[in-house]
Write a protein that binds this DNA or RNA. Structure first.
Lengths: 249, 249
DNA sequence: CCTCTTTATAGTCGTAGCGACTATTAATTC
DNA sequence: GAATTAATAGTCGCTACGACTATAAAGAGG
């Protein structure tokens, strides 16, 4: 059933308020790490407004979808991945400023998605060309997508402290060096390797060793032991970000 | 399939037949602490569906409003407070399951609001009677409001750990005992008073003493020093919740 | 082959934070 | 004025953590 609710045609219970139907969309901040840099998936706009500018992938929520379902569908379309069921997808927040789209009233539910490997995106369907772009030089983006992307970055950075989210950037089996690089890339600094190792291994359920003493050969140094994501969801104790300069008075 | 608003092949502007308009509402989880118990502001529904059941206050987002603006307007209407500009209001998440309202497609942006004192709510406008109810015996609520309320509780509990949010439950000047009671009420346990005091005072910017060595008299024991909310937004180091039983293997 | 480089892993040391606990102080109540 | 209540001060021992050093195991290049 379609809601044509402007004026007096609102359903029972809503008729005391006049309300305007809004378009509801999802926007995706799809993040990955390639060559030690944080990359974001962007699409190039072909028409006004913001023609030629890059934007976050997204689209309308269909009548029988939740926002989460729509976001996962868009994620599959934009990345071209066959199976996105295991990927980390999380609602960020909703952006509803009246003027955020000059054409009409659009309320957008933003999501953050994290990918381990980074396949080159295949432009799905009629979508404009999609590409990985470095996070640092991504902007300025169309609409309020700069802010959405910044919010996503901040949220992911904060969640690395107290959740196992970092493993979502890693392949199924990974070394502690790769895991550390996730933290360093998202937080933008360097961490002490022995200390990082001690903290990760001291946190129960964060990672577990791959059976058989598997090691990753082919690198330049000593082969690293392989680990899998553990069963814990939260980190106790948390892995706190080193404080920025100037914090302690 | 469906034309995409951000796609390259769509004609000028949005294709009006590509999406279905949704009603967009806000729902508020308004929390306070009264007599050492966590209370939530609820309204009684007068009509189907869920007639006679309690629900979170909320309403439609008007055409010229953002969701935040609508939430603050609803907060003022439901609580009857003249000035809600200083109250803590924060977006929680958006609920968009297709069947969450049996009448029509409603996407609801949920907010959490924290109040220090607890004036008896005046039923604002045509709203049904609004009342403070204890959090523990609030359910079952109408629609998916049980889940929204639970999500709000969990979010607030988590934010107490690493933000100064607890002061939002307190009046402008408060004692450390009152602040501790906020933590105990939301987390549902007891904290050691000397240790709590030491941690709060050791966190720069969390609280600052009221000038003049002001103290709160009239209580039964030794008068407590009065404090104000500090200037910091985040807590360094965080005030971690005591681990639940069974967490360490 | 031997050595240098690179990376992983092991361990040390001093400090800060924190949980558990005891002691003291200053008000009200009986 | 003694008992009660609550705030504040302080102690003790353990753990976590940052900074640092040392060792092990691979490839690179002569």
């Amino acid at each position: 059933m379609t809601a044509r609710a402007t004026g007096g045609s609102a359903p029972e219970g809503y008729d005391k308020h006049a309300f305007e139907p809004f378009a509801v969309t999802v926007d995706l901040a799809v993040l990955t790490i390639r060559a030690g840099a944080l990359d974001v998936l962007l699409v190039e706009r072909g028409q006004e407004p913001y023609a030629g500018r890059w934007a976050l992938p997204g689209g309308f929520v269909l009548p029988d979808e939740s926002a989460e379902t729509a976001a996962r569908r868009e994620l599959a379309e934009e990345t071209g991945l066959a199976d996105v069921s295991g990927l980390h997808l999380e609602q960020l927040r909703t952006y509803s400023e009246p003027g955020r789209d000059p054409r009409m009233r659009v309320v957008s539910v933003a999501f953050t998605a994290l990918l381990p490997d980074a396949p080159e995106p295949r432009g799905g369907g009629d979508a404009a060309e999609a590409r990985w772009r470095p996070y640092d030089t991504a902007g300025p983006l169309a609409f309020d997508h700069d802010r959405i992307l910044a919010d996503a970055h901040e949220r992911v950075g904060a969640q690395l402290e107290y959740s196992c989210l970092a493993t979502a950037f890693c392949p199924p089996e990974f070394t502690l060096g790769e895991l550390q690089q996730v933290y360093e890339t998202v937080w933008g600094g360097t961490l002490d390797r022995p200390n990082f190792r001690r903290k990760v291994l001291a946190t129960p359920g964060f990672v577990e060793p791959v059976p058989g003493a598997a090691r990753l050969t082919g690198g330049r140094g000593k082969p690293a032991a392989l680990y899998r994501a553990g069963t814990a969801a939260a980190l106790h104790p948390p892995l706190l970000r080193p404080p920025r300069e100037g914090s302690p008075a």
